[in-house]
Simulated scan of single mutants.
Amino acid sequence: MPKHVETVFLDRDGVLNEKMPEGRYVTSWEEFKPLPGVAQAIGSLNRMGIRVIVVSNQRGVALGRMTNAGVEAIHARFQDLLRASGAHIDAFYFCPHDKEGCDCRKPKPGLFLQAIRDFPEIQTETSIFIGDSLSDIEAGRNFGMATVLILGNAEGRRPEWEEARKLADASFASLPEAVELLVP
Protein backbone atom coordinates (compact mmCIF):
# COMPACT_ATOMS: atom_id res chain seq x y z
CA MET A 1 0.00 0.00 0.00
CA PRO A 2 1.24 3.50 -0.72
CA LYS A 3 2.48 5.42 2.31
CA HIS A 4 0.94 8.59 0.89
CA VAL A 5 -2.43 8.22 -0.89
CA GLU A 6 -3.52 10.97 -3.28
CA THR A 7 -6.28 9.22 -5.28
CA VAL A 8 -8.76 6.51 -4.39
CA PHE A 9 -10.58 4.88 -7.28
CA LEU A 10 -13.83 3.16 -6.30
CA ASP A 11 -16.01 0.65 -8.06
CA ARG A 12 -19.71 1.49 -7.64
CA ASP A 13 -22.06 -1.48 -7.24
CA GLY A 14 -21.10 -3.55 -4.19
CA VAL A 15 -18.74 -0.86 -2.85
CA LEU A 16 -20.89 2.28 -2.69
CA ASN A 17 -24.35 0.78 -3.03
CA GLU A 18 -26.05 -2.59 -2.69
CA LYS A 19 -25.28 -4.86 -5.60
CA MET A 20 -28.23 -6.30 -7.48
CA PRO A 21 -28.48 -10.09 -7.90
CA GLU A 22 -26.41 -11.48 -10.79
CA GLY A 23 -27.94 -10.51 -14.15
CA ARG A 24 -29.85 -7.52 -12.74
CA TYR A 25 -28.78 -3.90 -12.82
CA VAL A 26 -29.42 -0.75 -10.81
CA THR A 27 -31.55 1.10 -13.36
CA SER A 28 -33.03 3.95 -11.29
CA TRP A 29 -32.40 6.06 -8.21
CA GLU A 30 -35.07 4.05 -6.39
CA GLU A 31 -32.95 0.90 -6.87
CA PHE A 32 -29.72 2.63 -5.79
CA LYS A 33 -29.31 1.78 -2.09
CA PRO A 34 -26.17 3.36 -0.57
CA LEU A 35 -24.34 1.05 1.81
CA PRO A 36 -24.06 2.05 5.49
CA GLY A 37 -21.27 4.50 6.29
CA VAL A 38 -20.29 5.17 2.67
CA ALA A 39 -20.99 8.92 2.78
CA GLN A 40 -18.94 9.27 5.97
CA ALA A 41 -16.06 7.23 4.50
CA ILE A 42 -15.98 9.38 1.36
CA GLY A 43 -16.18 12.51 3.52
CA SER A 44 -13.14 11.28 5.48
CA LEU A 45 -11.19 10.87 2.24
CA ASN A 46 -12.30 14.36 1.11
CA ARG A 47 -11.17 15.95 4.39
CA MET A 48 -7.74 14.31 4.00
CA GLY A 49 -7.42 15.91 0.57
CA ILE A 50 -7.64 12.58 -1.24
CA ARG A 51 -9.19 12.65 -4.72
CA VAL A 52 -12.13 10.19 -5.02
CA ILE A 53 -13.04 8.82 -8.45
CA VAL A 54 -15.68 6.22 -9.32
CA VAL A 55 -14.97 3.82 -12.21
CA SER A 56 -17.76 1.38 -12.98
CA ASN A 57 -18.83 -1.11 -15.64
CA GLN A 58 -22.48 -0.44 -16.51
CA ARG A 59 -23.25 -3.21 -18.98
CA GLY A 60 -26.98 -2.64 -18.49
CA VAL A 61 -26.70 0.30 -20.92
CA ALA A 62 -25.50 -1.99 -23.73
CA LEU A 63 -28.29 -4.42 -22.89
CA GLY A 64 -30.92 -1.67 -23.17
CA ARG A 65 -31.94 -1.81 -19.50
CA MET A 66 -30.92 1.83 -18.91
CA THR A 67 -29.39 4.77 -20.76
CA ASN A 68 -26.20 6.76 -20.32
CA ALA A 69 -28.38 9.65 -19.14
CA GLY A 70 -30.05 7.35 -16.61
CA VAL A 71 -26.68 6.31 -15.17
CA GLU A 72 -25.59 9.95 -15.02
CA ALA A 73 -28.86 10.87 -13.26
CA ILE A 74 -28.21 8.21 -10.60
CA HIS A 75 -24.69 9.60 -10.11
CA ALA A 76 -26.05 13.17 -9.83
CA ARG A 77 -28.57 12.11 -7.17
CA PHE A 78 -25.85 10.21 -5.28
CA GLN A 79 -23.62 13.30 -5.45
CA ASP A 80 -26.49 15.37 -3.97
CA LEU A 81 -26.85 12.82 -1.16
CA LEU A 82 -23.10 12.94 -0.49
CA ARG A 83 -23.03 16.76 -0.47
CA ALA A 84 -25.78 16.76 2.16
CA SER A 85 -23.33 14.74 4.30
CA GLY A 86 -20.37 17.03 3.56
CA ALA A 87 -18.80 14.63 1.04
CA HIS A 88 -18.33 14.45 -2.73
CA ILE A 89 -17.00 12.33 -5.59
CA ASP A 90 -14.49 14.20 -7.76
CA ALA A 91 -15.51 12.37 -10.96
CA PHE A 92 -17.57 9.43 -12.22
CA TYR A 93 -16.50 7.33 -15.21
CA PHE A 94 -18.42 4.33 -16.50
CA CYS A 95 -18.24 1.83 -19.32
CA PRO A 96 -21.62 1.48 -21.07
CA HIS A 97 -20.46 -1.35 -23.34
CA ASP A 98 -21.03 -5.08 -23.44
CA LYS A 99 -18.24 -7.52 -22.66
CA GLU A 100 -16.28 -6.96 -25.91
CA GLY A 101 -15.41 -4.16 -28.28
CA CYS A 102 -14.09 -1.35 -26.10
CA ASP A 103 -11.03 -0.39 -24.10
CA CYS A 104 -12.92 0.91 -21.06
CA ARG A 105 -14.58 -2.19 -19.60
CA LYS A 106 -12.62 -3.20 -16.51
CA PRO A 107 -10.12 -4.85 -16.30
CA LYS A 108 -9.10 -2.84 -19.39
CA PRO A 109 -7.50 0.58 -18.72
CA GLY A 110 -9.86 2.98 -20.54
CA LEU A 111 -11.68 4.39 -17.51
CA PHE A 112 -8.38 5.06 -15.72
CA LEU A 113 -6.97 6.70 -18.85
CA GLN A 114 -10.04 8.97 -18.99
CA ALA A 115 -9.44 9.95 -15.36
CA ILE A 116 -5.75 10.70 -15.99
CA ARG A 117 -6.70 12.81 -19.03
CA ASP A 118 -8.96 14.89 -16.76
CA PHE A 119 -6.62 14.80 -13.74
CA PRO A 120 -3.07 14.62 -15.19
CA GLU A 121 -1.54 14.82 -11.70
CA ILE A 122 -2.79 11.29 -10.85
CA GLN A 123 0.09 8.89 -10.23
CA THR A 124 -0.51 5.15 -9.93
CA GLU A 125 2.03 4.80 -7.13
CA THR A 126 -0.06 7.09 -4.91
CA SER A 127 -3.40 5.57 -5.93
CA ILE A 128 -5.53 2.74 -4.57
CA PHE A 129 -8.34 0.95 -6.37
CA ILE A 130 -11.13 -0.42 -4.17
CA GLY A 131 -13.54 -2.88 -5.74
CA ASP A 132 -15.55 -6.00 -5.06
CA SER A 133 -14.74 -8.28 -8.00
CA LEU A 134 -11.87 -10.05 -9.70
CA SER A 135 -12.09 -7.67 -12.70
CA ASP A 136 -11.72 -4.73 -10.29
CA ILE A 137 -8.60 -6.18 -8.68
CA GLU A 138 -7.16 -7.11 -12.08
CA ALA A 139 -7.89 -3.57 -13.36
CA GLY A 140 -6.04 -1.94 -10.48
CA ARG A 141 -3.11 -4.33 -10.75
CA ASN A 142 -2.94 -3.93 -14.54
CA PHE A 143 -2.70 -0.19 -14.02
CA GLY A 144 0.01 -0.46 -11.33
CA MET A 145 -2.12 0.53 -8.34
CA ALA A 146 -2.49 -0.98 -4.91
CA THR A 147 -5.79 -2.88 -4.71
CA VAL A 148 -8.37 -3.51 -2.01
CA LEU A 149 -11.15 -6.06 -2.22
CA ILE A 150 -14.44 -5.28 -0.49
CA LEU A 151 -15.87 -8.59 0.67
CA GLY A 152 -19.45 -7.46 1.34
CA ASN A 153 -21.93 -10.10 2.38
CA ALA A 154 -21.24 -13.74 1.58
CA GLU A 155 -24.47 -14.21 -0.42
CA GLY A 156 -23.52 -11.48 -2.90
CA ARG A 157 -20.01 -12.70 -3.68
CA ARG A 158 -19.14 -13.89 -7.14
CA PRO A 159 -17.59 -17.34 -7.57
CA GLU A 160 -14.13 -15.86 -8.28
CA TRP A 161 -13.99 -13.84 -5.04
CA GLU A 162 -11.35 -16.11 -3.46
CA GLU A 163 -9.04 -15.57 -6.43
CA ALA A 164 -9.66 -11.82 -6.15
CA ARG A 165 -8.85 -11.93 -2.44
CA LYS A 166 -5.52 -13.65 -3.14
CA LEU A 167 -4.60 -11.05 -5.79
CA ALA A 168 -5.66 -8.00 -3.77
CA ASP A 169 -3.17 -6.19 -1.56
CA ALA A 170 -5.77 -6.10 1.21
CA SER A 171 -9.40 -7.01 1.83
CA PHE A 172 -12.03 -5.53 4.12
CA ALA A 173 -15.70 -6.12 4.86
CA SER A 174 -16.77 -2.65 3.68
CA LEU A 175 -15.58 0.69 2.32
CA PRO A 176 -15.86 2.41 5.74
CA GLU A 177 -13.64 -0.29 7.28
CA ALA A 178 -11.11 0.02 4.45
CA VAL A 179 -10.95 3.81 4.75
CA GLU A 180 -10.63 3.67 8.53
CA LEU A 181 -7.75 1.20 8.44
CA LEU A 182 -5.95 2.26 5.26
CA VAL A 183 -5.95 6.01 5.54
CA PRO A 184 -6.28 6.85 9.25
Rank of each mutant, 00 (worst) to 15 (best):
E155Y: 09
F129A: 01
G110Y: 02
G101W: 06
C102N: 11
L63G: 06
I122E: 13
K108H: 04
D169N: 05
E177S: 02
L81C: 15
Q58Y: 00
S135C: 11
M66F: 11
T126G: 06
A39S: 10
R83T: 14
M1T: 07
F94M: 04
R59Y: 06
E180P: 12
S171F: 06
I128Q: 00
N142I: 04
R117Y: 15
P159W: 15
I150E: 00
A91F: 13
V54G: 08
Q123F: 15
E155I: 14
E6A: 14
I128N: 03
I42N: 01
N57Y: 01
D103M: 01
G156L: 14
E163W: 14
I137W: 04
S135V: 05
A69R: 12
T124C: 08
T124D: 13
S174K: 02
H75A: 08
V5W: 10
F112W: 14
T124S: 12
L45M: 10
R83C: 15
N46G: 15
F143V: 14
E125H: 12
Y93L: 08
K33G: 10
S28K: 10
L10A: 03
V15W: 05
Q114I: 02
D118H: 01
D169S: 00
R83K: 13
P184E: 01
V183G: 07
L63H: 05
F32I: 11
T67I: 00
K108T: 00
E31D: 07
S127W: 07
E138T: 02
A62C: 01
A87M: 13
E22P: 02
K99E: 13
N68I: 00
I50S: 12
V5M: 08
V55E: 08
K99D: 15
S133G: 10
K33P: 09
A84Y: 09
L181A: 10
F32C: 14
G101K: 02
L151K: 15
D169G: 13
A173N: 10
K33R: 12
D136P: 12
L182E: 07
N153V: 00
D118G: 11
M145A: 04
E30N: 09
G152E: 10
A146C: 02
V183N: 06
E121H: 08
E163K: 07
E18F: 15
A168V: 06
E22A: 09
D11E: 06
F92G: 09
G49Q: 11
L82Q: 01
Q79P: 09
F94A: 01
I122P: 11
S127T: 00
A69F: 07
G37Y: 03
L113V: 04
A91K: 15
A115W: 14
E125I: 11
P107Q: 07
A115G: 12
P96Y: 05
L82G: 00
R12F: 14
R12L: 15
P184M: 06
R141D: 03
P176D: 01
S135M: 08
I50Q: 04
I89G: 13
G131Q: 05
A84L: 12
P109I: 07
G14A: 12
E6Y: 05
I53D: 04
R59A: 01
V183T: 06
R12S: 12
I128G: 02
I53Q: 08
I150M: 10
G64P: 00
F94P: 06
G37S: 05
E163D: 02
F78E: 03
L45C: 11
E163A: 04
N68A: 11
E30T: 08
G70H: 11
P107V: 10
